[in-house]
Write a protein that binds this DNA or RNA. Structure first.
Lengths: 219, 219
DNA sequence: ATTACTATATACCGAGTAA
DNA sequence: TTTACTCGGTATATAGTAA
């Protein structure tokens, strides 16, 4: 079911439909997809119905572009292939040190989390996380982390507040062993939080705006 | 036809079938592909028939791995997605074919330019440029080109006359590979000049006043 | 438990054609 | 020219089984 959609979306994306409306007739799309004009027309209607594309149906020629959902569906596909061909045990991302903001800070102070970090990551984390804003070129790689299990740190409840599961990935930052932590059911983010047994800013002599490389283990 | 194959191959690859035989029953594969055991069994036979996988049919459990052809088929797919996502910037503009006027015509005939076009654009340009008058709605997008480096074609001097640097952008016009060329230090213009290895008016069956769409790479 | 055959149900495609 | 309907033929999937 989905596959027919993806093939068509991919074709449209290759013609530039991710960035802008492109003019394409149902016959032209059909030719490129090796199908009839009728089937291509039907496919377009199905994609519209599924909110994967949007259309500007002009008098002479329709113009089509992918919706956000369409793009994200394609990106998911791309990620499957990245997993196959690029995942050789680790993901390398680059980014800039940014100031706080993350929730990681707060987590680390919770004794129940802290104990698990120490058990499962095999180091006692320094009280605080280092936040790294990942380069646009590398954000897709974070999707691999969201799709991987990682090391699960169990959530808990305290004082009526729920602390959800957290997952951690063993990692290295400039050759120092550390861990990337994120909510187990994470929403999209281009910032990662790093736990380490040392005070990374001091140990590495780095600060806000400095560029770092993080090598994250995934299996 | 091919798509069913690719989905199944990808699934097997994700389970490690690219590097080694993996033990997987037809039921298990069916579950992962959201299909019945029977269909998965059939799919495996089809993949074998097409030489995309090889199988070691043991007494209790079959073991499967991808063949070289299977891997290369998957790699081709991966490449499609790389084309889509790694190529960040396109500019899509629309306009009308107009008659000559541009300087491009003259440039192409200069051997020193011509040689560079052939080297750097990776096609031998047809002797002449196609001029496109860009719609008022799209002229602003041309500013992006003026602010991008593009592919620099070095200028030269000849007979006391100076030929300045020219910059080129790889582009597509109605899905034919071409290049947009302009002076490296360009003044404002709402006309772009297109170089192609084919005679575009003839190849596309277009002429003065016809509307075209040009997709320009700006990475 | 397997794999895989046959027979039936379903989904899909495209020819013909309207608007 | 377009887009997109209906309808019938074919391809594909699965249920029921056999080995």
């Amino acid at each position: 079911m989905n596959e027919k959609f993806i093939i068509a979306l991919r074709r449209i994306a290759l013609m530039g439909g991710m960035h802008d409306y492109i003019a394409i007739s149902s016959r032209e799309l059909g030719d490129r997809l090796d199908m009839s004009q009728q089937s291509a027309s039907k496919r377009i209607l199905e994609l519209l119905e599924a909110d994967l594309i949007q259309r500007d149906l002009g008098a002479r020629r329709q113009r089509i572009r992918l919706t956000e959902e369409g793009i994200s569906l394609l990106r998911q596909e791309y990620l499957e292939y990245q997993k196959i061909f690029e995942l050789k045990g680790h993901v390398v991302v680059h980014g800039l040190i940014t100031r706080g903001m993350g929730e990681g800070q707060y987590y680390v102070h919770q004794p129940i989390y802290k104990e698990q970090f120490s058990d499962k990551l095999e180091f006692m984390p320094y009280e605080g996380t280092l936040n790294v804003q990942i380069d646009a070129a590398d954000v897709d790689k974070l999707e691999i982390l969201r799709n991987s299990d990682g090391i699960i740190i169990d959530g808990f409840e305290r004082n009526g507040r729920t602390f959800g599961d957290v997952k951690a990935f063993s990692a290295k930052i400039h050759n120092i062993h550390c861990a990337v932590v994120m909510p187990a059911r994470s929403h999209y983010s281009d910032v990662i939080e790093i736990l380490c047994q040392y005070h990374l800013r001091r140990t590495l002599g780095i600060g806000d705006g400095d560029r770092v490389e993080v090598i994250i283990d995934v299996d």
